[in-house]
Amino acid sequence: MSASRLVIFYALFAGLSILANIGFQKLSLIAYSGPFSVLFSVVVGTAVGLIVKFALDKIWIFRYRHRDLSHGIRSFLLYTVMGLATTAIFWGFEFGANAIYHSEPTRFTGGVIGLVIGYIVKYRLDKRFVFA
């Protein structure tokens, strides 16, 4: 895949993952509004975004095939570990925006900004350590 197509597809898939993440956060907030509802929604959104992004990256960006189920599980776990630092970036922006502005739209905006930065970093980590 050419570099320009790679950037376009990676950005498109990052956008889809961001939509899945923020969408499931919103659905979680609709379904549950009790104590720790924001934290719960962020965890749910993060999990959904992680699964969506892993599948898209594995198949379309890196064209990676697992040897067997255990190799696939190890790859997903390594992908998840690589995502810990980028999740810290994402959560930092989202919770930071929430702490400063105390509104859902700005919290989601902070989350999107954090996700964009995180996905740029994550591509480099995945290319080098997960899908090498």
Rank of each mutant, 00 (worst) to 15 (best):
M1W: 08
M1S: 11
S2I: 03
S2Y: 10
A3V: 12
A3L: 12
A3P: 06
S4V: 14
S4C: 07
L6R: 08
L6Q: 11
L6C: 02
A14N: 00
L16M: 15
L16Y: 03
L16Q: 05
I18K: 00
I18C: 09
A20Q: 11
N21Y: 03
N21I: 02
I22A: 03
Q25E: 13
Q25L: 06
Q25F: 00
Q25K: 08
L27T: 05
L27D: 03
S28E: 08
S28A: 15
L29E: 07
L29K: 11
I30M: 14
I30R: 04
A31S: 13
A31D: 05
S33Y: 05
G34V: 08
G34Q: 14
G34W: 09
P35A: 14
P35H: 11
P35Q: 14
P35D: 13
F36I: 12
S37F: 07
S37M: 07
L39A: 14
V43A: 12
V44P: 01
V44C: 11
G45A: 05
G45R: 00
T46R: 02
A47F: 13
G49R: 01
L50R: 02
I51Y: 07
V52F: 10
K53W: 01
K53Y: 11
F54H: 06
A55R: 09
D57S: 06
D57W: 00
I59K: 13
W60V: 04
W60N: 07
F62T: 07
R63Y: 08
Y64M: 09
R67E: 14
D68G: 13
D68T: 06
L69A: 13
H71P: 01
G72L: 08
G72S: 08
I73T: 10
R74D: 04
R74G: 03
S75A: 15
S75K: 03
F76N: 02
L78K: 06
L78H: 05
Y79D: 03
V81G: 03
V81H: 05
V81S: 08
M82L: 11
A85R: 09
T86F: 02
T86L: 09
T86V: 11
T86P: 02
A88Y: 08
I89C: 05
I89L: 06
I89W: 03
F90W: 02
W91Q: 09
W91Y: 15
E94I: 14
F95R: 05
N98I: 11
N98Q: 15
A99D: 07
I100S: 04
Y101V: 10
H102E: 10
E104N: 06
E104L: 09
E104W: 01
P105L: 08
F108R: 06
T109K: 04
T109Q: 01
T109M: 10
G110A: 08
G110W: 00
I113W: 00
G114H: 07
G114A: 06
G114V: 05
L115S: 01
L115E: 01
V116G: 03
V116S: 00
I117K: 01
I117Y: 02
G118D: 02
I120V: 15
K122W: 02
Y123T: 09
Y123W: 10
L125N: 06
K127I: 04
K127Y: 09
K127D: 10
R128A: 13
V130S: 03
